[in-house]
Write a protein that binds this DNA or RNA. Structure first.
Length: 1031
RNA sequence: GGGCGGUUAGCUCAGCUGGUUAGAGCGCCUGCCUUACAAGCAGGAGGUCACAGGUCCGAAUCCUGUACCGCCCACCA
């Protein structure tokens, strides 16, 4: 068996076998029945988007989670890692559309056309996306399994599967019933060419050369300021065509002219609309000398077009300005979409412009101003303009109706009252705000904020809490509708109707039928006034008579019974065609995956989860919303810890997702280096402080330039190979290991030493892993395994394995140390450790050291107990003694190398040491001889330097290596040694002669320095003596 | 514009609360195919810790400023 192990570690077969073993044993499965509150550990995966296969960033993210999960599973906890994927609304829809177009197949535009023609284009397109999703979901889950992720695969979820969909409907209903969902206007990124809405990151910014046009708007009544009569105000704009929709001119209240002008009216040219001059802080004061671009160009007057500019929209909101949309969806000027206040007879000019494309209209309008002598000036200007990534035409801010969640509205009958949190509040207008903020404590934003402030929600590293906090404090209402087809369709049905005369009761009576079908959340809005006439709180009564006019009725069905399609249709209701923001369903992920709103065992056992492990860019979008929804729906935070890991960057320091990372499928690395190698390298790179550049293998071109090629995982690969080979050695030597033959009193110094080191590493790894440091345990294990166990312990153990008396002791210690090391390594390199563990189980089934330490074995290392209780092995004096041995060996090896002595050549040496250390050194001289290639080592308290010997100094000892006869080389070596020692002495002397240091530094630091100086001085004397003897 | 990081060996990075002569891996140089491992073993060279000030007996570490690099958010009349 042992002999059959290959020399080079072959990850593929080991991975396969381990995967099989784990799948059979279902060790990843979390069992609710064995879970007790203190003994559970739960993590939900940040669900990867089904847009594409995973990249290195995912590999890192999931490696770290798996390390935590495996660690806690081995600590004996009922452990759940919930896997799944995210439908990623806009991204996926876009990707599929792109693919279809690339393949010259019917794409989104075509399906939209079908939909328009009454065919079912929507569901056909969704089916296309669905099959894309199926493909990538399978691929992603396969990648995760290949990486060794010990997710509970029996529970795999998808944000759009029925379990999650039910949670989405339930939360939406709850929000709707609580009056937290409302209909509002919002400017979206509109692509007039494809006539679709774009997400912010689908907008490409391009620098465009354009102009600033300075347009003069006449005042209705001239104003006199400082003796000057002012007849016009001049506004500067880069988009003159929008002036048709102007509803105000704004100026900064601190502008000296504001006093005279604010409140006056302006007659909007061409249109003839009378619009007010309003005061708004947002307006930049003019200053031609300023370095600020805006101040240089500003006239102090800003045209306000709420329907066509996000900023102006805000100003419009502040001043209650009318919103006049002058454009059609195709970007042409139109009076059919909200612009009513013009007159064909009075305004032939307007009639001219209507129907023009926005760019044509721009020219026409500028020309009109020029002709009318109202164009004050034109200046060159280049600025950033958003373009559609799809059609590459400039995007148009376009006003549309959207669903919103009110995040700062106090929640009626909130399940968490402010009594549940201990934060200070201040009450204004009857609302309790979290002190120092304008966030009501019992609003959604408030619910997400207080766990942070009261310390229950912790960020690692801590600095990220600022992100979270300031975002929530400045939170605006959350627009949740998206004009897409791929996603959770908004569960709201609506119908317009008009009321005339006495039809009110009859109409409303009909709506009551809906309630009988389970719809209890309902709202009827009077279109003209926007007034809500039936509140969700009032449900059926009182039914009041209202004014005649147009109404819209919205219904949100309960998640369980639902509003049956037929019923809705029969009643003339139509479902909203939009879908929900992807983050809406993501926000529910920690509990939707567990089956909420059903109250079940899983939720009881595993909610709240322990940690969320994610990248920093979604703290606001995702983390905060999960906390919000967890608090709102379950009355508890979804996780206590948020671990934000570093990002992997490419060689240029760019985000991986933008360059290198996207191209690299973890599977290619797993194939070439093995999953363990990848995990080990990734975990070892992770630190709290900064992002990390992926080391890449550099490629040198013929012209001498170097180009980055592929990421390097050699480190991990080499480590695995070392682990494999050390284990081979163990397997060859552990046959017949008999725990009964172990005798604690016969442990030799190397046994005691390696056990001491082992105990220290167990302590270190356990502690660092608990505080989310991953590179520390990786480094500690790397050093311990490679440098301590392999380089020293195994080398010293080799001869002992051939010694009948020593063999049983060394075998038991080696088996035990290897066993414990494998367990600690397992979270990092799961496959290879499982493979070796299985071999070890065959060859040395019981690994224990008498009564000193017992380590129960297990059928899989995955469920083997984590090493513990080894502290009694810690022996600092033993470690110091071994260090002395190592130093002696190092000194002799250096001499061997310097004199180019062949490794096979046996040497004789003399070691001169103080009386007190002689016994220890003599006891252990074999350690030095074996590893330094000495035939004999004479150890004396006093001995002259043998002729023709090289001298080395270790601590307070002298080592002479006999018969190395190159006087000049020896002189140079000693001279160099002398200089080195002297350079150490100087700063120490300076330090110790400094009165302040001696009196003010910690005594142990001073003592340390004194000791060190004494050692160095002794060494210097010795070197000088040797030098003198040479001469 | 607001916020947050980074700058340590040729490369990628450690270095926790200031205190031995600043570390690792890779790369480089020298010698070894030593019966676990050449994906290895042994040894070595290589750093005024971005810059300028400050605090302190003492600064890679704490403070201030500068430069460059990066990230997030906001915004572009």
């Amino acid at each position: 068996m042992a002999q059959e192990l290959p020399k080079i570690y072959d990850p593929q077969s080991t991975q396969q076998q381990a995967e099989q073993l784990w799948a059979q044993g279902r060790y990843y499965h979390a069992n609710e029945k064995t879970a007790t509150p203190k003994k559970t550990y739960a993590v939900v995966i940040p669900p990867p988007n089904v847009t594409a296969a995973l990249h290195l960033g995912h590999a890192l993210n999931n490696t770290l989670q798996d390390i935590l999960v495996r660690f806690h599973r081995m600590l004996g906890k009922a452990t759940l890692w919930m896997p799944g994927t995210d439908h990623a609304g806009i991204a996926t829809q876009t990707v599929v559309d792109k693919r279809l177009r690339a393949e010259k197949k019917p794409a989104l535009v075509d399906y939209k056309e079908m939909e328009k023609n009454g065919q079912d284009g929507r569901s056909q397109f969704v089916a296309k996306v669905q099959s894309w999703k199926d493909e990538y979901e399978a691929r992603i889950l396969g990648q995760l399994k290949s990486m060794g992720c010990s997710c509970d695969w029996d529970r795999t979820r998808f944000t759009m599967d029925e379990v999650c969909a039910k949670a989405v409907r339930a939360v939406f209903f709850k929000l709707f019933a609580d009056g937290l969902i409302y209909r509002g206007k919002r400017l979206v990124n509109w692509d007039p060419a494809t006539q679709t809405v774009l997400a912010d990151d689908e907008v490409e910014h391009q620098t465009v050369k354009g102009f600033f046009w300075y347009l003069k708007y006449p005042l209705v009544e001239p104003v006199v300021i400082n003796g000057q009569t002012i007849e016009h105000v001049t506004v500067a704009t880069t988009r003159p065509e929008t002036m048709l929709g102007d509803t105000a001119v704004a100026m900064n209240p601190s502008d000296p002219r504001a006093k005279a002008l604010v409140g006056k009216q302006v007659r909007l040219p061409i249109v003839g609309r009378l619009i007010p001059i309003v005061a708004d802080e947002h307006v930049v004061l003019p200053d031609p000398e300023s370095s600020e671009e805006k101040a240089k160009f500003s006239t102090g007057f800003l045209k306000v077009t709420p329907a066509h500019d996000p900023d102006d929209w805000q100003i419009g909101q502040r001043h209650n300005l009318p919103v006049i949309n002058v454009m059609a969806p195709d970007g042409s000027i139109s009076d059919k979409f909200g612009w009513t206040d013009w007159d064909v007879v009075k305004n032939p000019d307007v009639e001219n412009i209507i129907g023009m494309d926005r760019f044509e209209a721009r020219e026409a309008i500028v020309e009109w101003f020029r002709t009318e002598k109202l164009l004050a000036e034109v200046r060159d200007y280049s600025h950033e303009v958003g373009h559609s990534y799809r059609s590459h035409v400039p995007i148009e801010p376009y006003l549309s109706d959207q669903w919103y969640i009110a995040v700062k509205k106090p929640i009626p009958n909130c399940r968490l009252s402010m009594d549940d949190c201990r934060l200070e509040t201040e009450t204004r207008d009857g609302i309790a705000y979290i002190k120092g903020t304008d966030v009501p404590g019992n609003s959604l934003a408030g619910l997400a904020l207080w766990p942070l402030l009261d310390g229950r929600l912790k960020f690692y590293p801590e600095r990220y809490r600022n992100n979270y906090q300031t975002w929530l404090e400045n939170l605006r209402d959350w627009p949740i509708s998206r004009q897409l087809w791929w996603g959770h369709r908004i569960p709201v049905w609506s119908k317009s109707f008009s009321l005339t005369g006495n039809s009110w009761e009859e109409t409303v009576e009909k709506e009551r039928l809906l309630y009988l079908h389970g719809s209890v959340a309902c709202r009827i809005i009077h279109v003209d006034s926007g007034k809500l006439i039936l509140n969700p709180e009032e449900y059926l009564y009182p039914i009041r008579k209202e004014t005649e006019g147009e109404y819209i009725s919205y219904f949100c069905p309960t998640p369980d019974e639902g509003l049956r399609d037929e019923v809705a249709k029969a009643m003339g209701y139509k479902q909203d065609s939009d879908v929900l923001d992807t983050w809406f369903s993501s926000a529910l992920w920690p509990f939707s995956t567990m089956g909420w709103p059903e109250q079940n065992e899983t939720l009881k056992a595993f909610y709240p989860t322990n940690v969320l492990c994610t990248a920093r860019e979604i703290i606001t979008l995702w983390v905060s919303r999960m906390v919000m929804m967890g608090q709102y729906c379950l009355g508890d935070i979804p996780f206590g810890d948020v671990y934000i890991h570093a990002m992997i960057q490419d060689g240029q320091g760019r985000k991986m997702s933008k360059s290198l990372g996207n191209g690299i499928d973890p599977l290619t690395i797993i194939e070439s280096h093995g999953a363990d190698a990848m995990r080990f390298t990734l975990a070892g790179m992770t630190t709290d402080t900064q992002d990390v550049r992926m080391p890449v293998a550099a490629l040198t071109l013929p012209d001498g330039r170097t180009v980055n090629s592929s990421p390097k995982f050699d480190n991990g690969r080499n480590f695995c190979n070392k682990l494999w080979n050390a284990s081979r050695f163990a397997m060859m030597n552990l046959e017949g290991t008999d725990p009964a033959a172990f005798d604690a009193s016969k442990l030799d110094i190397t046994d005691k030493w390696i056990l001491s080191r082992l105990a220290a590493v167990v302590r270190d790894v356990t502690e660092t892993l608990t505080s989310y440091r991953f590179n520390d345990p990786v480094n500690a294990l790397y050093k311990f395994f490679w440098n301590d166990l392999c380089d020293w312990y195994l080398e010293w153990a080799k001869p002992r394995m051939a010694d009948a008396a020593q063999r049983p002791i060394a075998q038991n210690v080696l088996a035990f140390a290897l066993d414990q090391t494998l367990r600690m390594l397992h979270p990092f390199v799961p496959f290879i450790t499982e493979g070796i563990f299985q071999n070890l189980n065959t060859i040395a089934p019981v690994r224990k050291l008498g009564t000193l330490a017992a380590a129960p074995s297990a059928e899989s290392i995955m469920i083997a107990p984590w090493p513990a209780g080894l502290d009694s092995f810690i022996a600092p004096d033993i470690e110091r003694q071994i260090e002395t041995m190592q130093n002696c060996i190092g000194a002799i090896r250096e001499i061997r190398n310097k004199y180019n002595i062949h490794p096979a050549k046996r040497l004789i040496g003399t070691l001169v040491a103080p009386q007190g250390r002689l016994q220890m050194l003599r006891d252990n001289s074999r350690l030095i001889c074996e590893l330094a290639g000495m035939e004999q080592l004479i150890i004396e308290a006093d001995a002259p330097k043998p002729a023709n010997s090289a001298a080395a100094i270790v601590e307070e000892m002298q080592i002479y290596v006999h018969d190395v006869v190159d006087v000049e080389a020896e002189r140079q070596r000693l001279q160099k040694q002398k200089e080195f020692i002297e350079s150490g002495i100087r700063p120490l002397q300076a330090k110790l002669s400094n009165e302040s240091f001696v009196s003010r530094a910690k005594p142990e630091v001073v003592e340390q320095s004194r000791q060190k100086l004494k050692d160095l001085t002794d060494q210097l004397d010795a070197v000088n003596k040797n030098l003198a003897e040479l001469a």
